[in-house]
Amino acid sequence: MAELEIEGLSLAFGGLRVLDNVSLQVETGELFALIGPNGAGKTSVFNCISGLYRGSGSIKFRGQELTKLAPHAIARLGIARTFQHGELFPHMSVVETLLTGRHAHCRGNVISGMLNLPRARREEFRQRAEVERIIELTELEHYRHAPVDALPFGLQKLVGFARALAMEPKLLLLDEPSAGLNRDEREDLARFILRVKHEIGLAILWIEHDMQMISDLADRIQVLDYGCTLASGPPAKVLSNPKVIEAYLGHSSA
């Protein structure tokens, strides 16, 4: 079953066409990579899915149309995303960051929280236990109470990934999770992505520039260039496509 179905998505800022009739489908449990040169419109696709940009066309999540929904309503349907630069909340510890990711799952009103009533406390402990599961999954045990702004960039990105997982999404959007990571961190990340895919069975839409990682991990690839779909299919086929090579490396002089 398709988790995410994008049909004929177009987006323009004034006269600039950012996305031109993009269509794609992400199946349940699939790791779907979206690649393309800088400025190809990959992040714009994400922003359209999460409701930050309003394009024309249709975006359906499990059959439900997303294009009219507010960003927080879309997130609450079970779509989580990470950001290119981490975008963590300064002054929060790792635990607090992940608890914030669980906001949509937190029950109880402001008043019971203000008075710290037993049911608010029980709820808080329940969420804390869920967060602990994510901490274990992403091996962040050493940094539970570290302020996120004091962590090195690689860990910050991992915390961003963990925060998205804490939302218990059904569809995960990863925006260049490996950018800025060193080799060890990339290998860890690849391990976590596979773990999430196999243990939780999430559908993942993944923007990436690291061709090695993509050809090793992705189930399917779609290539964007100037907002148009250049190619799509299994990695081996797409990455050997002359048009894709040309978009990345330029014309051959021969």
Binding site: S50, G51, L52, A70, P71, H72, A75, R76, A80, R81, F83, E87, F89, T100, G101, H103, A104, R163, M167
Partner: peptide
């Protein structure tokens, strides 16, 4: 923006 993406109204 990030708060919204986490499902916070």
């Amino acid at each position: 923006t990030v708060a919204g993406a986490l499902g916070i109204n």
